[in-house]
Structures are given as C-alpha cells and as structure tokens.
Amino acid sequence: MSKNRIASFEAGRLLALLGVIAIHSQLFMTAPLINDQPWLGLLINQLSRFAVPLFFIMAGYFIAPKLVTAPKDTIKQYSLPLLKVWLVWSVIIFLVPFNLQLAWESGYLAERSGYWQYLLSQPLNTLFEGSLVHLWYIPGLICGLLIIAFCCHTKKLNLLLPVAITLYLFGLAAGSYAPLTGIESPLFTRNGPFMSTLMLTIGFLIRQQSWQLSVGKAFMLALMGMGMHLAEAAFLIRFDVPFNMHDFLTGTPLWATGIFFMLKQRPQFGKAIVSLNISKHVLGIYLVHLLIIIYLMHLLPMLGFTGYANDILRFVLTCIISYGLVVLIDKTPLRNWLLR
C-alpha cells in the first residue's frame, strides 16, 4: 500500500464495493420469505445504499484541492479517462449476449435485439447511463464534478451547496417521491447531476472548509441518516413504491457523510485488509461485476442451485470472478482501455 493512501478510506471503498455487489447480485432476494416477501434481502438491499454516496463523497474530497487551483485542467484530466472507460464498457456490454443459451439456439440477433430496442426506447437515460444500469455512476460523477468545476472557475463557490441541494431535492421529488409530488422528469433522476452533485459537494466542502466531526457524533449522524432512509423506504410502500427501489432518500446524504467522518477520524481502520492492495482494483471490479452477475443468474439455476445456495454463491462467485478477471486484465495492454 502506498504511504500516501489512507487505510480507512481504502477499506471504506472495499466495503462500499461489497455493498454494490450485494445490491446487484440480489442477495437473499429468493429466500428466506417472510409473509411471502424476501424481507432479509430487501433490508440488505437498502442497508447497502450507503455505498455509491460514499464513493461520491470520497471523490469530491480527494479532488477538491486540484479543482480549486485548476478547475478546467483538472476536470479534463480526470474526466477524459473515465469517459473512455465508460464508452468502451458500454460498447462491450451493448455487443455481448447476456443469455448465451438463447444466442446459441436462436441466434445472436434474436438474443440482442430485444435489449437494443429497450436501450433505444429511452435514449436520454441511455445517454446518461450507458448500455447497462450500473454504468450511470461515471456520467453522474462527471456531471457533478463539472458543476463544482464551473463554480470554482467562476469564483461562485457560495452557490455550490444551494445548487447541489436544489438538484437533489428535485431528484427526490421526481424520483422516489414522485407518487406524492406528481413531478415527472424525462431523465431518471438517479442519473446525471441530480444526486451526485450533492454527495460530491459534501466531500469537496469537507476538504475545503476543514470540517471535522468526532467519531461519536459521526456515528450518531450515520445512524440517524440510516434510520431516516429506512423509515422513508418503509413509508413509501403505502404509495406502491417498492421498498428496495431507492438509491437515494432524504436521509442518505447524512448516512454516507457520517460514515465518511468515521473513516476520516480512524485512518488506521482496516489496515490489515488494505495491505492486500485490492482497493486499486475497485473501479475495474465495479465495471465488470454486473456482467458476471448476469451470467451467473443464468448458469447457477442450470447447475441446480436454488434458494440460499443460489443467492450466496452468486454473491461470492461474483466477488471472486470479478477480482480475478480484473487482475488478469491489469496484466495486459487492455488495462489502458478497460481499467482507466
């Protein structure tokens, strides 16, 4: 591990990555069932929602000094490699078949055409997302950073937090709270700048304003934010909003901020895990993991795995295969195209 790396933040990235994989692999979403609902899986899904907000806060924190001193150059140097990786993976996922059995039996075009039509049916979301749902993170990150860079360049940093909060509230109003507000957005508000800007701004301001919070207060902030997030998710069920559909709610920024401050105040946390140097592969694993999950969702039932065995194996194998694949890619010239 590099001496310049903070162990707790590296460990935080790994924990967040496991949270993302838990969400996408649908851990415990088939069993156990309580009143015909997979409540353990639903709870794990929402308890993992700190992950992407934490990624954003960390990104805003670490890029802050460069954005302030050289906003135009920094955004260019930071964004172009990410856009290249996002475009390459979007093309790969656009082209590779998900259901290999169907492609074998009915042909490549028969397997792909339905998915291509789905992407073309929502061109705006596809533009801000890419060819698979998890790729939204990169355009969202860049959109948020562009807003911060613009405020830095125009010396209007006093407007940054109000703009970020306004975008976030609109994102909630036209997203999870749309059944209550009646507000609609042509762009799914998890995508683009709506949610990412506030999280990035929080990290940016923590760095620039030297905000501090004790471990105890940070824990209480995280606990309060998590409680709010879960309570909101439970409340929205009565408006026919599924419990597990929420990426961001009102309490989510507080939750992720509290976790960030806890990590910041305990820089040696997770040092033993970080010494394995897995965290440098986090972006690569993030990019490849959902494709692995899709293949495992087809393969494991064919091999006779169902229920708990299917869910747990899908999660564990996704972690192992994704890591192994990224390590292999990192040893080839393809790393410059696939891993930034």
Rank of each mutant, 00 (worst) to 15 (best):
P242E: 06
R190V: 11
Q209S: 02
R266V: 05
D247C: 10
M228F: 13
S279W: 02
L254R: 05
G216D: 08
G258W: 00
R207G: 01
T250Q: 05
G192H: 04
A272P: 03
L221E: 13
T189D: 12
M195Y: 14
G216W: 13
F239Q: 09
I259C: 03
R207E: 08
Q268R: 09
F219Y: 12
L236W: 11
L205V: 00
F269H: 02
F243M: 07
W255A: 02
I237F: 08
V274Y: 11
G225H: 04
M195C: 14
F269V: 06
E232L: 10
A218S: 15
K217Y: 14
I273T: 04
G258Y: 07
S196C: 01
G227K: 11
G192C: 10
R238I: 06
M199E: 13
M245I: 15
R266A: 12
G270F: 04
I202D: 00
M226F: 11
L230P: 05
F260V: 08
M245R: 12
I273D: 01
F261K: 11
K280V: 05
L254V: 10
M220Y: 10
L213F: 11
V215W: 03
G251M: 03
G251R: 03
H246K: 13
T252A: 07
L200M: 07
L221I: 08
V215I: 15
R190S: 08
M220G: 10
G258R: 11
T201S: 12
I206V: 15
F235A: 15
M224V: 15
N244H: 13
F204A: 00
V241M: 13
L276C: 05
G258H: 02
F243W: 07
L198M: 07
A231P: 11
M226T: 04
M226S: 10
K264F: 13
A272I: 03
R190N: 04
F269S: 01
M262A: 09
M262K: 04
A234R: 08
M245C: 15
L263Q: 05
A218F: 11
G251F: 07
F243C: 05
R207W: 07
I259G: 00
I202G: 00
K271W: 07
T197H: 07
I273C: 07
K264D: 06
R238V: 13
P193L: 07
K264S: 09
T257G: 06
I259Y: 06
N191M: 14
P253W: 05
A272T: 02
Q208C: 05
N191S: 10
K264Y: 08
E232T: 10
F243Y: 14
S275D: 14
I278T: 12
V274A: 10
M199I: 01
A256C: 12
K271P: 01
W255V: 04
I278M: 15
Q265N: 15
H246M: 14
L249S: 10
A256R: 09
D240V: 10
L200T: 00
S275I: 02
D240K: 07
R238D: 08
M245F: 13
A222H: 11
